[in-house]
């Protein structure tokens, strides 16, 4: 139990620190590396919650796929533009105030009425159960995601393709 608590706070520190670094580091490439760390940390949180499948997906899709794509995007864009792109976050002070206020609101609400920990109803074979649920109870949202992907892909291809 104490191991869990220790791991949680360690991950929390890692997540908040790396997330802040994503927003604050001037070097765009460094920001992406911090992002990779933050996404991996999120996978750690999933592991801690005994959601192994989600943790694996998180690593594969986000830390693996998304970060790679972002790195490529930066490299290609810098090649096209011909100069180093740096991150220019303006109005950091105002943003910090709003974010802190929202954080305070949510934290105070959670402290006042902690959410009851819900026991997951998913059985022993997690991946299999998820697969079955996606094909039964969640089949419509699943198919709708296909429509979403199709529309997004078409838009991306349209913007990326060269002029005829």
């Amino acid at each position: 139990m104490t191991g869990d608590v220790l791991a949680f706070w360690g991950l929390a520190l890692l997540l908040v620190g790396s997330a802040l670094a994503v927003v604050l580091s001037k070097n765009l490439f460094h920001a992406v590396l911090w992002l990779a760390l933050a996404l991996t940390g999120t996978a750690g949180v999933f592991l801690l919650l005994e959601a192994e499948f989600l943790a694996a997906i998180q690593l594969l899709l986000y830390a693996g796929g998304i970060v790679t794509i972002v790195v490529f995007a930066i490299v290609v864009t810098e090649r096209l533009v011909g100069e180093r792109i740096s991150q220019t976050s303006r109005r950091i002070a105002g943003g910090a105030v709003v974010a802190a206020a929202l954080l305070g609101l949510i934290v105070s609400a959670i402290v006042e009425r902690p959410l009851a920990p819900a026991e997951p109803s998913i059985g022993a074979d997690l991946t299999r159960t998820i697969g079955e649920l996606v094909q039964t109870r969640f089949v419509l949202p699943f198919e709708l995601l296909a429509v979403l992907m199709l529309a997004a892909l078409m838009g991306a291809v349209y913007f990326a393709r060269p002029d005829d």
Binding site: P141, L145, V147, L148, A151, F159
Partner: peptide, 25 residues
Amino acid sequence: NDLLVVFIALEILSIAVYVLTGIRR
């Protein structure tokens, strides 16, 4: 009748409309 579906539907229409907004490249 489900917030998850509301969200996915919202994303479908939003993504399509973002692209339509910039359809004149």
